[in-house]
């Protein structure tokens, strides 16, 4: 199908974009990569009266490191994340998960900001933001504010962003010392949205005990889901296969609420969650130990 008619603006500064957004309010949508918005418009699921295309606003795509914080501009394409040496060194968890997002042609256009604002529960980047303690910088035409990832994602396709705000930047700490990472998912075909996905981070102390652990699931509820209790099972302990098994059982049985879809029942999703938790934790622990030496 074809999109319904709309009025099109193509501002060349962020201030102009913000003024247009505050003028048109709920009627308007920001157009970033268009890889979620345009399909929805083609289906007429979305019929915004006004589109504000921010592809010609300069300086919104960058990946920088400043004082152990990585700063990523909202219009940075998924493809730029995939080929960033800085990310591969300082945020390998994020870097490794990007090729799981859609296909090369989609990643060439799709942006990190668009994926986060879209807040699809099955999307990779929202889950990664939770795992990496990201903060998001948003602005309207009078003020700027920072939102922590857990407060940003408030439900299915729903975020804390107000109708007059634009997401500008994502900030995340570089990966801590002695920390290992892992991201895995199961999808029907390469590039499809995952049936289940898990991001794991584990920090191992000098004494061989676990000092920190984080587990985040995607497509496991109405937004990215952190399994805090499962991660806590590992804290302060020497890691064994049995311990990993208990964490995986706890996370997949008690801390996620998958809905199922045409490809997978909720039970199968829980099964996948358990298997993937075991695999990601095992890989993360191994990598943490390698990085200690």
């Amino acid at each position: 199908m074809k999109p319904a008619p709309f009025e099109y603006f193509c501002p060349d500064s962020i201030d102009q974009a913000l003024d247009l957004l505050s003028e048109h309010g709920d009627e308007a949508r920001i157009l970033a990569g268009g890889q979620s918005l345009v399909p929805a418009m083609n289906f007429r699921i979305q019929q915004p009266a006004v589109l504000i295309d921010i592809n010609r606003v300069p300086d919104l795509d960058y990946i920088l490191e400043e004082e152990n914080v990585l700063r990523i501009g909202a219009m940075t394409r998924e493809r730029q994340l995939e080929f960033s040496d800085l990310l591969s060194q300082q945020a390998p968890l994020l870097h490794e998960s990007v090729p799981f997002i859609a296909h090369p042609q989609i990643r060439n256009r799709g942006t990190i900001g668009g994926s986060l604002v879209n807040a699809d529960p099955a999307a990779e980047l929202p889950a990664l933001m939770l795992a990496l303690n990201a903060r998001l910088k948003v602005r309207n035409n009078s003020q700027e504010r920072w939102i922590e990832a857990p407060e940003f994602f408030i439900g299915m396709f729903t975020t804390a962003l107000e109708a007059d705000e634009i997401l500008l930047e994502i900030a995340l700490p570089v990966m801590a010392e002695r920390t290992g990472w892992s991201f895995m998912e199961v999808a029907p075909r390469s590039g499809d949205y995952a049936l289940m996905g898990v991001a794991a981070l584990v920090t191992m102390g000098e004494d061989g005990k676990c000092e920190g652990a984080k587990l985040v699931y995607l497509n496991a509820g109405d937004g990215p889901l952190e399994a805090k209790e499962a991660a806590n099972i590992l804290l302060g302990e020497k890691i064994s296969d049995d311990l990993i098994q208990s964490a995986a059982e706890h996370g997949s049985e008690h801390e996620i609420t998958p809905f199922g879809n045409v490809h997978a029942s909720p039970e199968f999703q829980r099964h996948l969650a358990q298997v993937l938790t075991k695999k990601t934790l095992t890989q993360a622990v191994r990598r943490a130990e390698e990085r200690k030496q």
Binding site: L31, Q35, V38, Q105, N108, R109
Partner: peptide, 21 residues
């Protein structure tokens, strides 16, 4: 993927872009 074209040298879906872009 049938509509894939090159946009400034990189592959992209032409059904997910507007001509004005």
């Amino acid at each position: 993927g049938a509509c894939s074209i090159l946009f400034d040298g990189e592959s992209a879906r032409s059904c997910l872009m507007f001509a004005v872009q």
